[in-house]
């Protein structure tokens, strides 16, 4: 079932690639188009490709992006429509799709997580139809608008997928045991409270250093969360995984490395103190960190 959704995504990416190739004003027409084309192939034909070839294509994607070959095209002027609240309908189709599909899965006893993803796909199609209905836009216009938004996200939209792959390679390479050994030099394996604190310190610290809680998660999950907290104490993996991820935001709130969130607004709002936003966020980040550590300690010891 999900394979059909991937093929649909692949077809959409091929469409966006063709639109890019045809955009003669695009500064990096050929390489940007090729990037989305390769990604489209990976999605659409993924189950037919031998894994090594898929791996090679992934390396090609990263090389294209690394060489600065993935750029946004010229911006399309936004229309001053009086669309009003009707514009909200398409946006609501997506969560509605997810909810309905999940409820059906719950009722039938199928996999809820797969249901959410199927619902996302159905919801997107419903949203597309509603958007065209509400705005009166035709398919070419929708494609152009979608391409511009896709371009503006660029190669970064691949990041979660790349990080999940990195996590797998790290697991094979034994990064987790290496990190766990380090932690166990400081903390003994029975001290649940200290292990939770170490887990959350590492997560917030790595997120602050890299400005990115996404990249920190696979490292911490393998090094501390899984081997030192989940396995020995049979704790709830759903709760601890999402709380560990959220603890990373405490680090992101106090670091200059997260420039998009903490430094760009200083310039946008013409503030005098370059750290004005971070200064304000510090006590809230600390409070959140403490609150989440307390909840995790309760979950691990209770």
């Amino acid at each position: 079932m999900l394979e059909g959704v991937f093929v649909l995504t692949g077809l959409m990416l091929l469409w966006l690639a063709t639109l890019t190739w045809r955009d003669l004003q695009h500064p990096r027409r050929v390489s940007t188009g090729s990037f989305w084309f390769i990604l489209g192939i990976l999605f659409g034909l993924g189950s037919l490709l031998p894994p090594w070839l898929a791996g090679l294509l992934v390396v090609a994607l990263v090389c294209l992006d690394g060489a600065g070959g993935v750029r946004a095209g010229s911006a399309m002027p936004s229309l001053k429509g009086d669309g009003g609240s009707r514009l909200l309908w398409p946006v609501l189709m997506m969560p509605a799709g997810i909810l309905i599909a999940s409820l059906i899965c719950r009722w039938q006893g199928w996999d809820l997580s797969k249901g959410a993803l199927l619902g996302l796909a159905c919801g997107s199609l419903a949203a597309l139809a509603t958007a065209m209905q509400v705005t009166g836009a035709r398919l070419p216009e929708v494609g152009e608008a979608g391409r511009k938004l896709n371009d503006s996200l660029g190669a970064l939209s691949l990041l979660p997928q790349l990080l999940a792959s990195l996590g797998l390679v790290f697991a094979q390479a034994g990064v987790g045991t290496w990190m766990a050994d380090w932690v166990l030099r400081v903390v003994s394996p029975e001290q649940r409270v200290a292990l939770v604190v170490a887990n959350c310190l590492a997560m917030a610290g790595l997120a602050a250093l890299t400005g990115n809680s996404f990249a920190a998660f696979p490292v911490v999950a393998q090094g501390i969360l899984s081997p030192l907290l989940l396995k020995p104490f049979a704790a709830d993996p759903d709760a601890l995984a999402i709380l560990t991820l959220a603890v990373g935001a405490s680090g992101t709130l106090v670091t200059q490395m997260a420039a998009n969130f903490n430094l760009v607004p200083v310039a946008l709002l013409e503030l005098k103190d370059p750290l004005a936003v971070i200064r304000l966020q510090r006590p809230v980040a600390l409070g959140l960190w403490l609150g989440q550590v307390a909840l995790m300690i309760y979950l691990v010891t209770g």
Binding site: V5, L8, T9, M12, M76, S78, L79, K80, G81, D82, G83, L87, L88, P90, V91, M93, M94, L120, A121, G123, S124, L125, A127, L128, T130, A131, M132, V134, T135, A137, E141, V142, G143, A145, G146, K148, L149, N150, L153
Partner: peptide, 13 residues
Amino acid sequence: LTLPAVATVERYG
């Protein structure tokens, strides 16, 4: 998959 629909409604304000 959600981008074309979102981009269209954003374009219309």
